[in-house]
Simulated assay, not measured.
Amino acid sequence: MRSLKTIMLLATSALLIGAAAPAPGYSEADFARVAKFDAHVHANVNDPRFLDVARRDGFDLLSINVDYPDFPPLPLQATVAHQMQAIDANRFRFATTLSMQGFGTPGWTERTNRALDDAFARGAVAVKVWKNIGMVATDAQGKRVFLDDPRFDGVMAHLEQRGVPLIAHQAEPKNCWLPLDQMTTENDRSYFKEHPEYYMYLHPEEPSYEALMAARDRFVARHPKLAFDGAHMASLEWSVDELARFFDRYPNTVVDLAARMSNLQVQSNADIAKVRAFFVKYQDRILYGTDLTDSPPDPAARAQNPPATGNFAKEADQVWRADWRYLATPLGQRVDAINADAQGLNLPRAVIDKIYWKNARRFFKLGGASSS
């Protein structure tokens, strides 16, 4: 018969073993049954097939309107958003944007706020500002406009008052300022080859990466009460250490992962424990997103993520499943964008549930109803 001391030692050992055991994760088989939210897509055509594949794969969607010359005009983007939302308002949400036309002229703030209020009345849950602010847009005097320009203050105060989040795409991946042969991912390399106007290595006269990040940071500091979503990992995709410092400095911020998974995979291939620890530590600050773009067929279009096969629904399913395999499971997969295999992070279920669902629902104030 075991002594009381032995029993206590065995019980303590069992508790220690249990405490050391990793939290259970999901498998590939769990993919379709788990509620998920893609917080960064672009539905630029009224195509119910996008909703069909989202429904089948367990996704809700946030489609983001963008003042991007390779996209349809802003009024058409808004019309498509209204049409798609009318099909399935529980699954499809949209973010409006603001036009820089007339920026710096009398009445721009009032006109912009009225336009935003109209979009909110139609169901918009957020506002997007794009990289043209800082990289392209100029005011009425021809001067380059940066996000920390005080002439944005009236609009940002209006968003704060309305409790509406801002999604900000500022700058580009740091690869944009590097020679092609020094870029870390093939998708960045191909994008900037096709978009020389945005390839800053070719334009040393333009603002540096560091200058654009500093303007963004000054903006966030200037508006501490504004709910701020740094699109594309806040253009800090090259370093989870840098992104951690951003989070620590600005507690009212989140980021999405849209179109930056390969940049993460470069880092996790170098140190998977560090990348996994980053996700666990900042699990409340990260939103899943893809940048999937469903645009009208146009051989001349140069949007970042056009369908390569003409079957958008199939490609969306493939992207979603590949990302799930990387984030939620320990399984490896070939990633052409980094010319290597990438092992999955195998994040705990509780972390996956936040990144894929709870964080976006909370940040965009969508309530807790599950995807169905």
Rank of each mutant, 00 (worst) to 15 (best):
S3M: 04
S3K: 08
T6N: 09
I7C: 11
L9G: 05
L10C: 13
A11T: 14
T12V: 14
G18E: 11
S27D: 14
S27G: 12
S27H: 12
A29C: 02
A29S: 15
A32T: 11
A35V: 00
D47F: 01
R49K: 14
L51W: 07
L62K: 09
D67V: 13
Y68I: 03
P72W: 00
L76Y: 06
V80Q: 02
A81V: 03
H82M: 08
M84A: 04
D88W: 08
A89V: 00
N90C: 01
T97D: 10
Q101K: 13
G107W: 12
W108T: 12
T109G: 12
R111S: 15
D118L: 14
D118E: 15
V125S: 07
V125M: 03
K128F: 09
V129P: 01
V129N: 08
K131S: 14
M135F: 00
A140K: 15
Q141P: 05
G142L: 08
G142R: 11
K143G: 03
D149K: 09
P150H: 12
P150R: 14
F152Y: 14
V155P: 00
M156F: 15
V164E: 02
P165Y: 09
L166G: 11
I167C: 11
A171H: 05
P173K: 00
N175G: 13
L178T: 10
T185K: 10
D188T: 09
D188G: 03
R189H: 02
S190A: 07
Y191E: 06
Y191G: 00
K193I: 11
E194P: 00
Y198H: 11
M200I: 00
H203L: 08
S208F: 02
E210T: 09
E210V: 00
A221L: 04
H223S: 08
P224H: 02
K225Q: 14
L226T: 09
D229G: 00
A231G: 14
M233V: 05
A234W: 07
A234C: 13
L243K: 09
F246D: 07
Y250E: 01
V254L: 14
V255M: 04
V255I: 15
L257K: 04
A258V: 05
A259F: 12
A259E: 13
R260S: 10
L264S: 06
F279R: 11
Y282H: 15
Y282C: 11
Y288D: 01
P296R: 03
D298R: 03
D298C: 06
P299L: 08
R302F: 01
R302T: 07
K314F: 10
E315A: 07
E315I: 06
D317W: 05
Q318M: 11
V319H: 07
R325V: 08
P330E: 04
P330K: 07
R334N: 12
R334D: 13
D336L: 04
D336I: 01
A337N: 10
A342C: 09
Q343G: 02
N346V: 08
I352G: 10
D353Y: 02
I355F: 07
Y356R: 05
N359P: 10
A360N: 05
G367R: 07
